[in-house]
Design a protein around this nucleic acid. Structure first.
Lengths: 237, 237
DNA sequence: ACCTGAACACCGTTCAAGT
DNA sequence: ACCTGAACACCGTTCAAGT
């Protein structure tokens, strides 16, 4: 090939039906295997997909809309990959569910960013669909004697805790927060250390996270055990 | 004044000592009384402060550094505005502390954005300083028979829950999540509704938040009561 | 109908002055 | 030493074509 083919690109024009929304979203996910979503750029994505930037706007009328589509897909895939509940007792079911919840998202920064960190951008049309596992849980709680409102609160509390943990972990503020007494004896609730881990790469998931996460779950479930109406006279009436 | 003084601005050059980091940070806070931080722009801020954009870069070598400074100040001001603890028992102390925590940040979107939503950008030099209230709490827990590691976990769990709640609330995903049974009986953990509230303005803090928040605190504290080593033989040895 | 480059109004940041 | 406009390489988005 000639040595100095200056600006040799001029990508050929693509055929009429050669792109579609699904491909774009899929491509965006692939692109984000390399780059954090927050850094994904329309021109960059277009180059990656080998289309003109403006072509993307034919299918998504804004970047936000594209991110919404990605979030929808992330949610569906997330729900699908939640393993079915094996446990029988309500306590184990709750624990199992939220440990799966946490594990899945902690292992997938992109999904975590889309699902937990992204802001209330949408009504999550796609969310309601594949969402029956929660029902299962609520039912189990009802069977165990929890009144509906208490059951929902329980579910909500665990969900908030899980999301909070993922958030704080993802922002790298969690590494030695619990395990290591800060020598002088000082603790900090929002920014315990964040100095230990290297900062260049992905926040790098603080050290002892999984056990620390499970403690909170244990704690909340213990509380629910206590908050549950006593069962002695539950069967009657 | 003449009708068509086209581009009449040409702001006069400022004196040599007329800006300083403190003023810039203060100005930025003032600017954000009007605009969400995420939308604050260096040119906009400069215009608001009546300085050249580049002047800001003399004191802060990047926008990130400026935001860090803002976060530091937000943290200090946050700690200072935490009312002193009145309660005596460990349970009430914990509740009081985290309710204050929540109330303060829920009422101040800017501080919430800087402290909770911003990412692990720094070691929070300024945080460790005014941070003795947590000590107080840890001590109270120790006095109540909690081993140090358990006390820290307790504190951490409550803190994570609080931050998670603020996050989810700030992103507008919380409004009717608990109070209203979704008719069909479906619940969603990440995006319960988000469709009810108007979306244009600030996420508008979902309806029944405070009670919902306190439920989780009650729940976690109840769990701690159960997790605490039994006191019967605590005074001995 | 679908794909596209050029262009617009912005951004964060740097440079090379001005005082 | 401090303050500054012009300029740079980007961004998201729109426009006016091209096919």
């Amino acid at each position: 090939m000639p040595a100095s083919a200056k600006a040799n690109s001029k990508r050929p024009r693509r055929a009429r039906g050669s792109i579609n929304p699904a491909d774009i979203v899929t491509g965006a996910f692939e692109f984000c295997r390399t780059t954090p979503v927050d850094e994904m750029t329309m021109p960059q994505l277009a180059a990656f997909l080998n289309v003109g930037v403006t072509s993307i706007y034919w299918y998504f009328k804004s970047k936000r809309e594209l991110l919404d589509a990605m979030t929808d897909e992330a949610l569906v895939s997330f729900y699908e990959s939640m393993p079915p509940l094996r446990s029988q007792g309500w306590e184990d079911m709750l624990r199992e569910f939220f440990v799966s919840f946490y594990t899945l998202l902690a292992a997938d920064p992109l999904k975590c960013d889309l699902i937990v960190r992204r802001i209330g951008h949408q009504a999550d049309e796609g969310a309601m669909r594949s969402w029956n596992r929660a029902e299962q849980l609520l039912t189990a709680l009802a069977d165990a004697g929890f009144p509906p409102s208490l059951a929902r609160h329980a579910f909500f509390t665990l969900s908030i805790y899980t999301q909070g943990f993922l958030l704080v972990e993802r922002t790298g503020r969690v590494s030695g927060a619990i395990s290591s007494p800060p020598a002088g004896g000082s603790a900090d609730l929002v920014a315990a250390d964040a100095a230990a881990a290297p900062r260049g790469t992905q926040p790098a998931a603080g050290s002892a996270a999984p056990e620390d996460f499970e403690f909170g779950i244990t704690n909340i479930i213990a509380g629910l055990r206590q908050l549950r109406p006593s069962e002695e006279r539950a069967g009657a009436a």
